[in-house]
Write a protein that binds this DNA or RNA. Structure first.
Lengths: 203, 203
DNA sequence: GCTACTATTTGACTGTAGTCACTGACTAGA
DNA sequence: TCTAGTCAGTGACTACAGTCAAATAGTAGC
């Protein structure tokens, strides 16, 4: 078949088609909102066909899930910032604030709502609870560090604590989406973690 | 119009139609699963028409949301049981266990998943975050009691703590739905609250 | 260059949620 | 009892996500 990294013209074209569909969809979602965009519009703008769309995306949701995942990968930038802070508690708080600010700015209400809704569909790709998410690795590292330094409790494993903490983070996102963004996401979410959840985590 | 509580024949018939639609839908959902039932089937079994369905239910989701609300009201039975326990902590734990057992048995995965998904639709009736839910009143009462007896922290208001605790409860439901019920709902949910969240609540 | 194969693309088609202009039966008031 | 008006109910229709058999065009081997 293909040798090494080289792609045949056919494969290159296919990648282009996918890219055109992805960009067309994202620009339409941005212009009109997810619910007001049809697949027919997406493929018209991409200059391709409906069948092609469903080769590259299993559902309409999946476009947004992919967008979410792309943005989500940028958490590694946050990870570097964390080194400047000395305690695991500080790191957890800085991460929380960064996560909330970042999600609000880069994703926004509609992407978050759409992704959360998609996750409740049986066959949809599980993006937000994927343990490979960088976010989860960061949280797990902070917790392990906090357990080592004696800041955090160690009667539960770091994996288990990570699962619980990230569950609480998701809860803020879900609540905000259910309330149609009618409360201050960053303020409320930060308060929830810093004033409430942190206490469950500390020794 | 109508005098006192008396209903015209017309209004009685209308209530009957709604009831027939509701029962027809619930029995079909139970038989084939929510996603495999069409509105046309529902109205056929109810012996009425599609238009009638949409007079009584704004969306297909709403049937399940109403079912959820009916079941949800049965929390008042739990409330009475709580009086037997002495401390607010005990009450919170008994409530948690009861809630999880109850939801698992009476609602099940599909109802929970469907309701949670519906809540992310803009115009859907907000059932799970409705502050009038009996569950929230019970939680609030327990928290106020705990604050009075000095068991629970009082640096945050009981309302705020209620909001945070119930957010955590919703988180278990959401996670379980996203994972398609692939972990032990009662076991995991109870552990999350008793081993983790309770510590955030205690003084 | 020719051929057989296969990856990609197509768009007509299906299924189903939700709409709406219309119908006719019931009600209230004269 | 008659009638104007209302309200519950109807079902053909629209809109749109998702499917799939057929068509097209790139590729590899000769």
């Amino acid at each position: 078949m293909t040798q090494g990294n080289s792609l045949t013209n056919r494969q290159i074209k296919a990648l282009e088609t996918r890219e055109k569909l992805f960009n067309s969809a994202l620009s339409l979602f941005a212009e009109k909102g997810y619910d007001n965009v049809t697949i027919d519009e997406i493929v018209a703008r991409a200059g391709t066909s409906k069948g092609a769309f469903y080769i590259y995306f299993k559902t309409k949701y999946q476009v947004v899930v992919r967008q979410f995942q792309e943005i989500d990968n940028h958490y590694n930038k946050i990870q570097k910032t964390l080194k400047e802070y000395n305690t695991a508690s500080e790191k957890m708080l800085v991460l929380t604030k960064a996560q909330l600010t970042f999600a609000l700015k880069k994703m926004g209400l509609e992407v978050i709502t759409t992704v959360y809704k998609s996750q409740l569909n049986k066959d949809e790709e599980k993006a937000i609870v994927n343990p490979k998410r960088i976010l989860y690795k960061i949280v797990n590292e902070i917790i392990e560090e906090g357990q080592k330094t004696g800041e955090f409790r160690d009667d539960l494993s770091s994996q288990e604590l990570t699962r619980m903490v990230t569950r609480c983070m998701r809860a803020t996102f879900f609540d905000w989406a259910v309330h149609n963004g009618s409360f201050d996401f960053v303020e409320d979410g930060y308060r929830f973690i810093s004033e409430f959840i942190m206490r469950a985590l500390l020794k």
